[in-house]
Structures are given as C-alpha cells and as structure tokens.
Design a protein around this nucleic acid. Structure first.
Length: 399
DNA sequence: TCTGGGGTCCTAGGACCC
DNA sequence: TCTGGGGTCCTAGGACCC
C-alpha cells in the first residue's frame, strides 16, 4: 500500500546491524545460538559489556554496563572478548551490499551506515522496496539489520531504533513533526546525559519543546550546538549523506589500557606507556600515517581523565621517538605514588607539513635503518601477536 | 573489585601578535 | 602614568557516539 504512494523529497536510510558482535559470535558458534552471549571485557578486569545478544538483554544486560553487574544479572551467559578482524570482515561485506544498492553510502561505524535512495537520483525504485531488499541480502550473510527510512539523517537514525531486530520503520514525508515532537530529547543523537539535564533545567524534555526554543537564547546557553539541536528537533536538517570513498580523514590514532590493579610505580607506568606506544606505532605504520602531536592520558579514578600533549618537530610513526616524549609528559602529569588505573597515548597532527629531508646523509641513513627495524618488528608482531616482540628498553607487564 | 576502548567535536583560557 | 581589542594558536578537559 505504502509503496503506491510517491515519495517526496530526499529518501535517506540508516542501517544498523542487530546486536552485531554477539550475532557474529552466534553465527560462528552454532552451539551459542538461542543462548545469552556477552561480548565484552572480563568482569575481573574492570571490563564493560560491548554487545549483549537478545537472549542476554532479557536479563537486563546492555552495552556499556560494567561486566561485574552483567555477570550478576546473567551468571550463565557465555562470555567472549570478541574477534574484531572477523567483525570488520562481515561489516565490509554488508557495506558492499549497500554500495551495490546505491552509490551514496556513508559508513558511520562498524555496524551502521546511512544511504541515499532518493527516487530519481540513482534509481526510480520505491525506497521501501530497496530497504527490504537490503535486509534480505544482509540476512544471507547470517546476520540481520534494522533500517530507519525518512527524509533526513536525523529521522532515519531515530526511526532505525524504533523496531529491532530486523525492523523497518518508515517515516513518510510530511509526517516528520508528528514523529519527532513527542520523543524525549535524548532520542536525538548528540544529546547525552549532561545536555539532557541542562535542557531539563529549562523545562525542555521533548523534541517538540526543543523545536520551539528561541535560537539566540539557545546559542547563548549551549554554544553552536544550541541552534543546531533546535533545527534538528524541528525536522530541519541539511546534513547530506557523504560518500564512502572519501579520502582517509583519520585525525588521531590512540590506544589505552585500563589495569585490573592500579599502577603505582614509575617503572610500571613507563612499561605501560612503552606497551601502548608500540600498539600505536604499529597502527600508524599500517595506515601510513605520521603524526606531530603526542598526547598522554592518565586516569586516577573513573570520573576524570588528565591529558598532556607535546608537539614534535617532524612527523613520526616511530614509537621510540614519540614514546620518549610520552615518558617526558608523564613527569608533568603524575605525582609519584598516585595510583593510576588507565594509561593512554594518542598521535595526531597528521595534516602538518610534510617531513623535512635531513640535511646530513648519516641522518638519512639512520632514518632508513630505523624504518627497516620498525617494519621488521611489525612483521614479527603480525605473525606472532603483539606480545611477541618489544624494543629492549621496554619490559612487558605481566597479565 | 562497579564504569572499556577508539574515536570526533567543542569550549575556555592563556600566550602572543599587531 | 594608561592597560584596548581582534585574531590566532595552543592546551586541557569534557560531552558524546558506537
């Protein structure tokens, strides 16, 4: 019936893979199907739930819940740390299906993508038909997806959450206001706990109330985010689907570790920094990126992070170079004896000027030697895992 | 023994320059 | 013998997303 109607304006879909990581585990382990499966960190290691299967969700387990709590709610759940290369592989195949259906696809995360199926733009087919076909094609991979369809990204995103798993929620053109108005402000992506509370103080609880706010007042209260959220709540949004083949726009590469037991000595912290830097270095070389800004991140408690950063003279992907800087940053960030629960290192500043050529030949020789060593190290790690090899100065923390 | 890890974007304050 | 003001860059912290 709906398909008989003509679609007016843009048709944008948001595809979201249902309980993605847990579904892949159930696909790969048939004996886990129909059972509660939790992908996430160890309850004994300060972990959290990454994804819970629908069977586990019945017990109240959900993403981002501390593993300790999840274990209490569902003690018989099957736990796994997850298999990210496998998730990436399946995600890639799903994205290929989308690209095959329409050239305009914007992947927003490993399990989500917007796609533009505006009638007349790439095909004249009914948007609803295309969405149903996408769902069928994804299902042939052994996993399922839910889709929201509407005239803007905001509408599509909210609609996709309406019905799961394997739901298709369509918000027809001209019904946007009625769809949005009764929803809590939290339904808008970008409005989290803090903004929700700030809005509640001004007695703004629904998108309908948000849509009626004065944009100048919202600008004063919330900065540029203010008028933007008013416009989105009103169904006014211009943000277009951006093509998938955009150049690599990676702005930072980081790794961090939370420890089961707080670190307290400089020796432990330096070893942890060395370890995290190796992970970052390997990934930088794999991506072909060199950064000019080193950031060290520490957590002393759960609530706040402390960061310090330092620019480099020349871009690098060598952890011996940025690791030494990270260790120096530690001295300004950490008072000896203070327990540290998390250590993180980030590299950024990739858009900085290209690397300068060394003035002296021996510098160049040293650089190429250093690069050869780093590449050999990566090869060993690729074969035997990251724990297989580290530079002499670092020692590895025991698990 | 409650609270991950990998990201992006925004803001505020100080330094610095003209 | 008075302390402007705009622009930009840098840094640290926080909100938010999946």
């Amino acid at each position: 019936m709906m398909d008989m109607l003509t679609w007016h304006g843009p048709a944008i879909g948001l595809m979201d893979l249902d309980a993605f990581f847990a579904s892949v585990e159930q696909l790969d382990h048939p004996e886990w199907r129909g059972k509660p499966v939790i992908v996430g960190g160890d309850a004994n290691r300060r972990g959290v739930v990454s994804t819970a299967s629908y069977e586990a969700r019945k017990y109240g387990v959900h993403s981002a819940m501390p593993s300790m709590q999840a274990r209490k709610l569902c003690p018989h759940a099957i736990w796994t740390r997850g298999n990210f290369p496998r998730y990436r592989e399946l995600s890639h195949r799903v994205m290929q299906i989308l690209v095959d259906e329409t050239p305009l696809v914007e992947q927003v995360s490993i399990d989500e993508a917007f796609f533009d199926i505006t009638p007349g733009r790439f095909s004249s087919e009914s948007p609803m038909d295309i969405c149903r076909r996408i769902q069928e094609r994804v299902a042939t991979l052994g996993i399922t997806c839910s889709i929201g369809l509407g005239t803007s990204k905001t509408i599509a995103k909210i609609a996709s959450e309406r019905e799961k798993p394997r739901g298709l929620t369509v918000v027809m053109p001209h019904t946007e206001q009625a769809f949005l108005a009764p929803l809590p402000v939290r339904a808008l992506s970008g409005i989290g706990k803090a903004t929700e509370q700030a809005l509640a103080q001004r007695h703004i609880r629904t998108l309908g109330e948000l849509a009626r706010q004065d944009e100048d007042q919202m600008l004063a209260a919330f900065g540029v985010a203010g008028p933007r959220m008013v416009a989105r709540a009103a169904g006014r949004e211009s943000s277009a689907v951006r093509p998938i083949d955009a150049p690599d726009e990676t702005k930072s590469v980081s790794n961090e570790r939370t420890f089961a037991h707080d670190l307290t000595t400089a020796e432990q912290l330096n070893a942890a920094i060395g370890h995290v830097c190796e992970l970052v270095g390997t990934r930088l070389r794999k991506k072909g990126l060199k950064g000019t800004l080193v950031t060290l991140k520490l957590k002393f408690d759960t609530r706040h992070t402390h960061t310090a950063q330092h620019p480099l003279d020349a871009p690098t992907d060598d952890e011996r170079v940025f690791g030494a800087v990270a260790r120096k940053l530690l001295r300004g960030l950490w008072v000896p004896g203070t327990p540290v629960r998390l250590v993180g290192v980030a590299m950024s500043g990739f858009d900085a000027k290209p690397e300068q050529l060394s003035l002296f030949d021996n510098d160049q020789a040293a650089q190429s030697e250093s690069r050869a060593l780093a590449e050999a190290t990566d090869a060993v790690r690729a074969r035997f895992g990251n724990a297989a090899l580290s530079y002499g100065r670092d020692f590895r923390l025991k698990d």
